[in-house]
Write a protein that binds this DNA or RNA. Structure first.
Lengths: 116, 116
DNA sequence: CAGGATCCTAATCGATACTG
DNA sequence: CAGTATCGATTAGGATCCTG
């Protein structure tokens, strides 16, 4: 006998999930957005925030995020010349999701503090 | 002159983020958790919920999630034999994060409904 | 129905070196 | 400082076939 597929009880379809995960693709992308959620950061500052990321991967992800209109790049007229990255309005929309992930991460990392 | 690294304004360090992302690693993992958030599902039902996932990847991710105590597997005494997967208490903790991601995904996919 | 085994491709990442 | 170029290792994922 054939088992019937029960109707899912989940309200929204999986496609918005996939759409959002496409933006956060890459192991370091959430960290980049998280770091930028505190305000504009320079390239070197991002590397400082995310210690084990290579400059190659960091610049790759930043370029992708710019292409997706999540991050904006501004060249500053300083000496030496430097650049600043900041979240766009679209990028700011991602912050609550990252915050939720961080909250869970805290629970996973410190189960004893889960009561709080 | 050397540019100074400005102190980050982000409250929590990136490590909890990384810890949580490790659990959600893989393109399909969030979809699996999302599908299970509606209640226990069988293997075939998960494949139905996530149309383009191969059985290999699905079973791989399910095994990883079991190893991480996020998902529990129960063999049912039916004919033909079937198995059910469900979220553990730890797995349930991930649901709010996934929900937040879905919410952003809806905004990305349907910007015109962003007002709601 | 519920998966494991195998083969293969594409993407990601890390390390190193180099440029303006 | 702010990246780019290149290489090599790892891995996720797709397709197909097969079993209990």
């Amino acid at each position: 006998m054939v088992l019937k597929i029960r109707k899912t009880k989940v309200a929204a379809p999986a496609c918005p999930l996939t759409a959002c995960m496409a933006v956060m693709k890459g192991a370091w992308t959430p960290n980049i957005i998280w770091s930028l959620s505190g305000g504009p950061r320079r390239f070197g500052e991002l590397q400082h925030d995310i210690p084990r990321v290579s400059s190659k991967v960091l610049s790759q992800r930043l370029r992708e995020l710019q292409a997706r209109r999540v991050v904006r790049r501004r060249v500053l007229d300083t000496s030496p010349p430097s650049a600043e990255y900041e979240l766009t309005e679209l990028g700011l929309e991602l912050v609550p999701a990252i915050q939720a992930i961080v909250r869970v991460g805290v629970k996973i990392a410190h189960p004893e503090r889960a009561a709080a």
